[in-house]
Design a protein around this nucleic acid. Structure first.
Lengths: 356, 356
DNA sequence: TTGTAGGCGTTATCAA
DNA sequence: TTGATAACGCCTACAA
C-alpha cells in the first residue's frame, strides 16, 4: 500500500499533496481532484471541506504530476532565430498573450541562427513533452532523423516566417514578395533608377521571396537588374554594414534593405563613407518600429504585422493541438508600406515646390 | 504488479518508455537508467545493448517524469515587466545562454507591468515547480500571501533591476544613481544650466535611484532644482511623449531621460513642437542600442550592461538553487557614459573651433 | 553488477 | 456521490 504522506523536508515542513488535502478534509483523493478540476458531482458539504483544507494547507496542484498523468503539458515550445532582433520580441509577446488566454505557457528558445542549437532545443522540447512547437527555422533543412522525431512524437509544428524544405506543416508568414514589390515600385515612382538590394540569406524562404519581389518590380518598371547591386546578407547588423561598404561605392540612387538590423549596419557604413540618406541615396527598409519616426532620416518601411504573426501562430498551433483540424494550413499576412523620408519622398515634394 | 508496457496510441505506435528500452535490451530499468545518466558501474556488454535499444526505439527520456521523481525541474522562471522594451530581450538572451550552459531552461513570462499578471505567473511558476525565479518586479510590493507562498515553496528568488519592499532576496542591478550623476555632470560640464528630468515610476527602485543621482549632481554642480522640470513617467513611450509636451515649453536647455522608450516619446513630442536636439536642448538617455549610433541625433547614453545583468542573475540564482550559498547577495554593475551628439558635445566643439 | 519494488503527485477507471 | 487503486515514466533504496 502506498504511503499517503508527502516527503517531509529537513525542517519537517513539506509541500502538501492531494493526499494531504484529502486527509485534512477526511475525503479521498478522488473527491479532492474532482473539486480542484471542478468536475461537479461533489456534494456541497464535501466540496466545502475540501476547499477549506486547500486553503488551510496552502495547497497548489503540481503541474508536473498532472502533465504526466494527463499526457499533456499545456506548454508550447517556441524557437526563434534571434531574440536580440527586435522583430521577435514583438512576436513572442503576442504569442505569449494568446497562449496565456487559452491556458498555455510558452517555452521560449533562441537558436541564434545555429542549426546545432536548434537541434538541441528541438530535442529538449520533445523531452519536455510540449504539446506543440512554433518554429522559426534556421537556414537549412531538418535532418531526416529530426523529421522522424517530430512525427514520432506527434507534436504539431507551426512554421513562422520561414518554410522548411521537406516539412509539411502549418505556416504563418507575411507576403514578402508583395512587400518588396511595393517598396521598389515606390522608389521607382519617385524617379529612382538604380535600385540596390540588401537581401537576406538565400536559403531562407522569406529572403528569396523578398528578392523575387525586388526583381519583379524592377522588371515591371522597366528597370535593369544589375547583379553587382544585389548583396546577400544574413539579417544581422554586420552584414548590412558590409553591404554598405560594397554597394555604396557603386553609386546606386536607392536601396531596399530587407530587414531592420541590416539597415542599421548599412547606415553606419554610409555614415563612415560620408554619403547621406536620402540626399545621396534613397532607402526603404523592412520592419517598422515605434522609434523609427523620430530619428533622422525617418525610415520609410515595409511594416510586418508582428503582433498578428504571433497571435496567428498560436491560434493555428492550438487548433492542431486540440485536433480541431488535421490538414496543413498557411496564413499569409499583408505587409504595409509606411512612407516617411528615407525614400526621398519629402525631398521630391520640396523640389517640386521650389520649381513650381 | 505494474504493467511494464507503455500506453499504445490509436495507431498502435507508442512513445517508448524506459521499460520498453529495458525489454528490448533484456535488462532491467535500473540498468537503463544507469546508462542514461551515465552513472558508471554498468558492464560494457549491457551498456552497449542498452544504447542499441535506445537508438532502435528512438527513446527520449520524459523530463516530466524525471522532474517528478527527482523533485527538481532544471527550469528557472523569469518574469519581466515588458518584453517589448528592447532592454529586456538582451537580458533574456544572456540569461538563456547562461542557463543553457548549466543545463537549465528558462520559462519566460511577461507581466506587462501589471501586478495581477505577475501574480498569476508567480503561481504558475510555483505550480510548475521551477527551481528558482528571476523577478523583475512590477511597481508595488508582494502581498503577504505571495511572500508566504515563495518561502513555503522554498524557491530562491533573484530580483532584477528592481528591489521589492519587504522581500529579502538576491539582487542584480546597475548603479543607477551613479549613471544619472554622470549624465547630469556631463551636461553641466557642457554648460547646460536648466536640466530637466524624465524619470521612471516613483515606486520603482531604480527610478528613485536615477532621480537621486540627478538631484545630487545638480547640487554638486550648484545648479538649482526646479520641480516643474521633473516629470514622472512609466518607462513607456507614451509617458515620454507626455513628458515632452509638458517639459519642452518650459525651455530647459537639457534633459535627462531615464530610459530609451521614453526618449522615443520625448523626441516625438519635440518633433511635433518643432524644437531640435541638440540645438534647442541637449539630451542624455539611459540604455544604449546598436542602432543609436547611426540615426540623428546620435544619442548620448548611459549604457547598462544588459548581457552581464542576465548572466549574473542566472549565476546567482543557480548558486542558490544548488545551495552553494544561503546569504542574500547584491551585485551592482557599473553603467557607462557613451558620448555622442545629442548632449551637444559636437556643437560645443564646433562653436569652439569657430570662435578660435 | 544487476534487479525488484515503491515513491514522486496527479488523473482515471471501476466498484461500491 | 464517493473510494480504492492502477496508471503516467522516471529514480533509487535495498536485495540479490
Amino acid at each position: 500500500m502506498r504511503s499517503k504522506t508527502t516527503r517531509a523536508r529537513s525542517d519537517g515542513s513539506k509541500v502538501p499533496s492531494i493526499y494531504d488535502v484529502g486527509r485534512e478534509a477526511r475525503v479521498s483523493v478522488f473527491t479532492v481532484s474532482a473539486v480542484i478540476n471542478n468536475k461537479g458531482g461533489v456534494s456541497a458539504t464535501l466540496a466545502r471541506r475540501v476547499e477549506a483544507a486547500i486553503r488551510k494547507l496552502n495547497y497548489r496542484p503540481n503541474l508536473l504530476a498532472r502533465s504526466l498523468a494527463k499526457q499533456q503539458t499545456h506548454t508550447i515550445g517556441m524557437i526563434v532565430t534571434d531574440i536580440a532582433n527586435p522583430f521577435f520580441p514583438a512576436i513572442v509577446r503576442a504569442a505569449e498573450d494568446a497562449a496565456q488566454k487559452s491556458g498555455y505557457t510558452v517555452l521560449l528558445c533562441n537558436s541564434d541562427d545555429k542549426q546545432e542549437k536548434e537541434a538541441r532545443y528541438l530535442e529538449l522540447l520533445l523531452s519536455r513533452r510540449v504539446d506543440g512547437i512554433i518554429l522559426n527555422k534556421t537556414p537549412g533543412k531538418l535532418s531526416p532523423v529530426q523529421r522522424q522525431m517530430l512525427s514520432d512524437a506527434r507534436v504539431p509544428v507551426v512554421l513562422l516566417m520561414r518554410t522548411c524544405p521537406g516539412l509539411r506543416a502549418d505556416l504563418v508568414q507575411t507576403d514578402d514578395k508583395q512587400g518588396a514589390m511595393e517598396a521598389v515600385s515606390h522608389l521607382a515612382r519617385l524617379g529612382r533608377k538604380t535600385i540596390a538590394l540588401v537581401g537576406g540569406p538565400p536559403d531562407v524562404s522569406n529572403a528569396r521571396a523578398r528578392k523575387q519581389g525586388y526583381l519583379q518590380a524592377l522588371q515591371e518598371r522597366n528597370l535593369e537588374y544589375h547583379q553587382e547591386l544585389s548583396f546577400d546578407g544574413d539579417y544581422r547588423i554586420d552584414s548590412g554594414y558590409r553591404a554598405g561598404l560594397a554597394l555604396l561605392p557603386r553609386g546606386p540612387d536607392a536601396v531596399l534593405v530587407t530587414n531592420y538590423l541590416m539597415t542599421v549596419g548599412f547606415m553606419r557604413a554610409a555614415d563612415e563613407m560620408g554619403v547621406h540618406c536620402p540626399e545621396d541615396f534613397a532607402l526603404v527598409s523592412f520592419d517598422d518600429y515605434p522609434w523609427l519616426g523620430c530619428f533622422r532620416p525617418r525610415l520609410t518601411t515595409i511594416e510586418l504585422p508582428k503582433y498578428e504573426l504571433g497571435a496567428t501562430a498560436v491560434r493555428l498551433l492550438l487548433e492542431l493541438v486540440e485536433s480541431k483540424r488535421t490538414r496543413a494550413k498557411t496564413v499569409t499576412l499583408q505587409p504595409q508600406l509606411r512612407v516617411r523620408e528615407s525614400c526621398g519622398f519629402m525631398l521630391r515634394s520640396i523640389k517640386a515646390a521650389v520649381t513650381a
